[in-house]
């Protein structure tokens, strides 16, 4: 098991119903994609947030990463929709 801080933004945050949480992760959660699959198993609010998984962006320790990125050593993992600033 490892402990990680998760943060959510925009409609991902709204659908899950919270902006951050700390979770214990099973050892078989190795990559961002594994983590998304794990979160989707936690309840329908996560299923709704990550329904269109391919559009979801991820960051580890505040740096953009792809879904194949290993999460080992991550202190903070963020999930959010495509960005719309500027």
């Amino acid at each position: 098991m490892s402990t990680v801080n998760l943060v959510y933004f925009s409609w991902v945050r709204e659908r899950i119903g919270k902006g951050e949480e700390t979770l214990e992760l099973p050892a078989d959660v190795v990559t961002i994609a594994d983590l998304l699959a794990h979160l989707k198993s936690l309840g329908e609010e996560y299923e709704a947030a990550f329904e269109h998984e391919r559009v979801i962006r991820a960051a580890i320790n505040q740096e953009h990463v792809e879904h194949g990125e290993p999460i080992a050593g991550a202190r903070e993992i963020a999930f959010f929709p495509p960005m719309t600033g500027g």
Binding site: F80, M83, T84, G85
Partner: peptide, 21 residues
């Protein structure tokens, strides 16, 4: 900045209806 900086815009509609992201 538009595609990589983590900002998100939500609309507040003038007619008071719920705005979209």
């Amino acid at each position: 900045l538009k595609t990589s900086a983590p900002f998100w815009k939500k609309e507040h509609r003038a007619d008071g209806s719920a705005g979209e992201w």
